[in-house]
Design a protein around this nucleic acid. Structure first.
Lengths: 126, 126
DNA sequence: CAGAATTTAATGCGGATGCATCTCATGCGT
DNA sequence: ACGCATGAGATGCATCCGCATTAAATTCTG
């Protein structure tokens, strides 16, 4: 079977692409805006799914971040003043997350960096 | 520009693919063979670039792992008895890494798990 | 309705990573 | 030969993550 080595080759290429971009993104976002990639992606989802507030689960479902990682990421964002957490009245186990004005500002600034890094490092020929 | 959103879309898909496979690999390799993905990939490079011993740098260059991460990964592999480190006589700053028989055995067993996970989770249509 | 089971999010803990720094060893210029 | 810059790899530190557990609220069941 040579399909095996092709499989491994595809995997290596995928990993290499991902790591290159992720590493560049992490550094650029951190240096220019003080947010990690996870934090940026979280803000991005909050802006994308735009309807005021969101449950933790919705956010987690829209991105690749475990429940505990998201919980901590939101805690960090809240510490930075970029989001606010609030209780969900309908189901008081739930937590609503709401992006603040500062959060929107940070996101819109960081978005340019994000796009620039993607354009630079995301190989267009898969 | 709509090329921007296409770019972001490609990035999200890449990240999602990578994370799905990486997560599955990590769990499967750990559960079935007690090695992490980095450890397996390191063994894999040692088998691939087959010529007895290798400098840390050669290994690092062949995979996506930072210098410090590789140093610790090799330390873990050595603790498991899967590789041995030895001084390089020509340039005594350097370190040679050599895979042991136990390392080869572990690698060849884990290889099957690795391939199985890739076949299962690596989407063939990019 | 009381109690068990489930769901939601937070957290303690251990482990892996990256950055910066450190220690040696080598090489280069004078 | 001496001194300084450079290179290889190890390590302290802070951070982030995943797993397992916990606490609180809700839902299911008898």
């Amino acid at each position: 079977m040579e399909a095996e080595s092709a499989l491994v080759g595809r995997w290596r290429k995928l990993a290499s692409c991902y790591n290159t971009v992720a590493c560049a993104l992490e550094r650029a976002l951190q240096d220019a805006h003080g947010v990690s990639m996870s934090e940026y992606e979280t803000l991005d989802r909050l802006v994308d799914l735009d309807c005021e507030k969101h449950r933790m689960q919705e956010i987690a479902a829209a991105m690749y971040l475990s429940q505990s990682a998201l919980s901590r990421t939101v805690a960090r964002l809240e510490k930075h003043g970029y989001v606010q957490r609030g209780l969900c009245e309908a189901d008081r186990r739930g937590v609503f997350v709401k992006i603040t004005d500062a959060g929107r500002r940070c996101h819109s600034e960081a978005r340019e960096t994000h796009l620039k890094v993607l354009a630079e490092h995301l190989d267009s020929t898969p």
